[in-house]
Each structure stands twice: as structure tokens, then as C-alpha cells.
Amino acid sequence: MALLRNGRLADDPWIQISGESPVPEGEPVILDYERWLEEKDRLDGRNAPLGVRLASDQPPSLIADDLARFSLVALEFPKFADGRAYSYARLLRERLGFAGELRAVGNVLRDQFVFMERCGFDALEVHGGDPEAAYAAAKGEITHQYQPTGD
């Protein structure tokens, strides 16, 4: 797995906390929504960046009031054909004014990179191959856009 940020391979300082694993002190962590909800009050005083991961049936309205707490929102594509997160991304950027990292996770394929970016994702968790080359190729394929988005 690799992380593309604005098309370049990037280090990923974020630790994704799965299940009941403990939350390490002083490290940037991404929690799933349920875990964050459980521990949100305790996490408030934490001295490290916080990220939240939303499943494809968890719209951003769930975190709208708490958005300022997050430096990162990860949106899941459980399969690439589940396109809900495209709308979520636009709402986060264009409606809720989220300016932190917006990360696409899950079944993130090169033929969708451009769609994701146009909806406001700036970080893509990708698998296999040469992601920078794939990104560059995908970006160059279609250069005209017919509709405004927040991009």
C-alpha cells in the first residue's frame, strides 16, 4: 500500500487504529467513526493530530459539528463502484469547508483517481504498480472538464 498526496508518493505518518487497539500518545492517528464517538471526550486533550474514517454509509453530517477536531478525514470506497464518498467529499470541501487532508481509502483504482481529485480528495491510498506513473498517466488522459466542482 502506498500513499499518493497530490500525485506524489508521500510518507504516511498516520497510524490507522483498528478494532480495540490502544491509541498511542503523541502520534497522529485515524480512528473509525464508532471508536471516535466512543472516545471523543477523552481524545480532546490529546496532543497529536486526529483523523476519522467514515464508512460508505456514514455521511459527513455525522461529524459536521466536530470537524474542527480533525486534521484528516478518510472516506472509504468498499468497492470502487460504490460512489457515495464522491458526494461526501464534495460536501466536506464545498459545504463544510474542511481544509485538512481528505483521503480516499479502500478500493481506490487509477481509473478513478481523477474523479476523486475533482471531488476534493488530496490523498489516495493506492495499491500495487507504480502509482506516480499511473497518476501522471491518468491525469493526462482527459484535460477538459464539462462541469464545475469545488476544484
Partner: peptide, 13 residues
């Protein structure tokens, strides 16, 4: 036609 062509949000409805 133009608006809907490769609309990035509505390609995986």
C-alpha cells in the same frame, strides 16, 4: 449532455 459527461461525482451511482 455536457454537464453530465464524466461528472466526477455521479459516475458510480
Amino acid at each position: 449532455r455536457q454537464w453530465s459527461t464524466l461528472h466526477p461525482e455521479f459516475t458510480f451511482l
